[in-house]
């Protein structure tokens, strides 16, 4: 059953997190809670401020970071025209929002689950840790380039064990990748689950390690989207013969519908 809705909601606040060279680039946007029956970590929403003129037509996709009885929080980084303008949203502004959309992360209560987050990719994994019924089975490795206080890391640390790795140099990155390969190998041995979200080079590395060590692994993609509902075909990813989702044809699957979370062995990331 479909339960997506498109509604106009009020911004409660838009709080900057940390600073980068004196600039606010990271924000926790808190919106009044939509009337959703349910949602799952890994799912996302499409969001477009009501005040936007036609010069910027698309809504923007954001992973659900937190949902409480009162609010919905999405976490974003200023990376382009859209997010730059979203940073100016203020309390009381209205946004048009539709969701929850997409295929969520797998949840296996009793399975040791490794969460791998790269930068802003931490957002859906915060939701994952928040909603998991047995959080003591979760552990996170978080790699980031900007200062730690730019990210919602502390909140996750309250619920699960998590380690952060500040990448200041290529050596730091190499060290982080070594570490996650070792971790992925360990989780593969105990038939654990590996879930990753972050920039594409990071996801490609995770995907390669998962294949090498035969780990069960899911990746959450951050593809450019226009509609969020499967129609525009702008967010597709190439699929392998292991892709089993119904309705996927011609070797390509929409990240908005069949993702954003995919099993790592079902997709090919050579175009992203």
């Amino acid at each position: 059953m479909h339960q997506e809705q498109c509604t106009t909601l009020t911004v409660l606040d838009n709080v900057p997190f940390g600073t980068v060279s004196g600039e606010n680039l990271f924000f926790a946007l808190r919106i009044e809670r939509p009337e959703w029956a349910d949602w799952q970590p890994g799912q996302f929403v499409m969001l477009r401020p009501e005040g936007w003129a036609l010069d910027m037509m698309w809504a923007r996709p954001f992973s659900i970071c937190r949902v409480s009885k009162r609010d919905l929080v999405i976490f974003f980084q200023v990376v382009g025209r859209g997010t730059k303008r979203l940073a100016t949203l203020k309390t009381g502004d209205k946004v048009v929002l539709w969701g929850p959309l997409g295929t969520p992360f797998a949840v296996e209560d009793k399975t040791p689950t490794l969460l791998l987050a790269g930068g802003i990719g931490i957002a859906p994994l915060v939701a994952y840790a928040q909603k998991h019924p047995q959080p003591w089975n979760l552990h996170m490795e978080f790699g980031h380039r900007m200062p730690l206080n730019c990210y919602p890391f502390e909140s996750i640390n309250e619920r699960i064990t998590a380690a952060n790795h500040h990448e200041r140099s290529p050596e730091d990155l190499a060290h982080f990748l070594d570490l996650i390969e070792t971790s992925i190998a360990e989780y593969a041995e105990s038939d654990g689950l590996v879930l990753a979200c972050g920039p594409t080079p990071f996801l490609k590395a995770v995907q390669a390690f998962a294949a090498k060590h035969n780990a069960r692994c899911q990746l959450s993609l951050e593809n450019r989207m226009a509609c969020g509902v499967g129609a525009c075909l702008g967010c597709v990813t190439k699929t392998t013969e292991k892709m089993t989702a119904k309705g996927v044809a011609a070797g390509r699957a929409q990240a908005c519908e069949h993702g954003p979370v995919f099993w790592a062995d079902q997709i090919i990331l050579d175009e992203e």
Binding site: D55, M56, W58, N223, L233, V236, T237, A250, E271, E272
Partner: peptide, 15 residues
């Protein structure tokens, strides 16, 4: 199968 990615880009008042 269609074209390779990226396939869409937002432009002023359009795409």
């Amino acid at each position: 199968a269609g074209n390779p990615m990226p396939r869409i880009a937002e432009t002023p008042c359009g795409m």
